[in-house]
Nucleic acid binder design. Structure first.
Length: 274
DNA sequence: CCTTTGTCCTGACTGC
DNA sequence: TGCAGTCAGGACAAAG
């Protein structure tokens, strides 16, 4: 389940092919969340990779050659992985897309569940419908306690579901929502408009530190993450509550509870979170 | 049958 | 009245 830190680590792992020119694109399966455009191989052929950026959980690969330019949007869904191969190797079952470069290296997308996406945007990628209305990046200063508190005023739904709304702030997936609420000692069922400014301060701080801790862990495990076998696994983190139903709280020892909120699992400690 | 993710859509409702 | 915002729920992608 790639969350923002894994996406960012994936982006870092791809940086070595910056400046390379696309030699050949192979699409083995177009059926992703949205179909991979039939014209993608033709579109990318001969373009040079200029920039690798990230917005929310999208990796944005900007390509250009002469007049032709645009950006490839890559989303990993819940089971997607991008590996950078030093040279072509035979594709396996769920390897849906290869982007081969002139120097022989290959970016390969593997996504068993195919919830991911590969899209092409000519022109300004920030105008793409999927990106245009997104909220701020969680690690930027525009995402702060005042912003959160202000935007929670009109929200009556539970803080857990509200904080996962990408129009409010991006990159807070199911795992980090539970984790940062625990760290901020806020009960996930709390109506968003009941949060005090002080609670918003704690929550923003914990979202930022939870994500940046994970980013640091990702950066330091980059070599393992982009393993020599070209088969990166996701770095395993120790969670306070996520997936720990019935196990003892790492702070107070009471059992971790799980509930459903908006058709998603939420994990929390009843005695630590108020 | 269940679970998992992010995103989009619909219909109902609220408040200005 | 009209409109924008909000919310709950469901749909959807596929596989284990």
């Amino acid at each position: 389940m790639p969350e923002l830190p894994e996406v960012e680590t994936t982006r870092l792992g791809l940086l070595p092919v910056l400046g390379q020119t696309v030699a050949q694109v192979t699409v083995r399966n177009h059926g992703m969340r949205w179909p991979i455009p039939q014209s993608l191989p033709q579109t990318l052929q001969g373009l040079t990779l200029q920039k690798l950026e990230r917005r929310a959980k999208y990796i944005l690969a900007s390509m250009q050659s002469g007049e032709a330019s645009g950006t490839l949007l890559l989303h990993l869904g819940m089971s997607g992985r991008l590996c950078l191969l030093e040279q072509f190797t035979p594709a396996e079952k769920h390897d849906h897309l290869d982007i081969a470069f002139a120097d022989g290296r290959v970016i390969r997308l593997r996504d068993p569940r195919r919830f991911g996406a590969v899209l092409w945007m000519a022109g300004d990628v920030n105008l793409h419908p999927l990106l245009a209305t997104l909220g701020p990046e969680p690690l930027q200063d525009t995402f702060n306690a005042r912003y959160l508190h202000n935007n929670m005023r009109t929200r009556t739904a539970a803080i857990k579901t509200t904080m996962m709304d990408a129009h409010l702030v991006v990159g807070v997936g199911n795992i980090y929502a539970s984790e940062s609420l625990f760290r901020a000692r806020i009960a996930p069922q709390t109506p968003a408009n009941k949060l005090t400014l002080q609670q918003c301060e704690r929550l923003v701080a914990e979202i930022k530190s939870t994500l940046s801790d994970a980013l640091k862990a990702g950066g330091s495990s980059l070599r393992d993450f982009f393993g020599a076998d070209g088969n990166p696994g996701y770095f395993q983190q120790t969670y306070f509550v996520y997936g720990r139903t019935g196990e003892p709280c790492r702070v107070c020892g009471k059992p971790i509870l799980s509930i459903r909120q908006g058709q998603r699992s939420t994990f929390y400690c009843k005695s630590c979170q108020k």
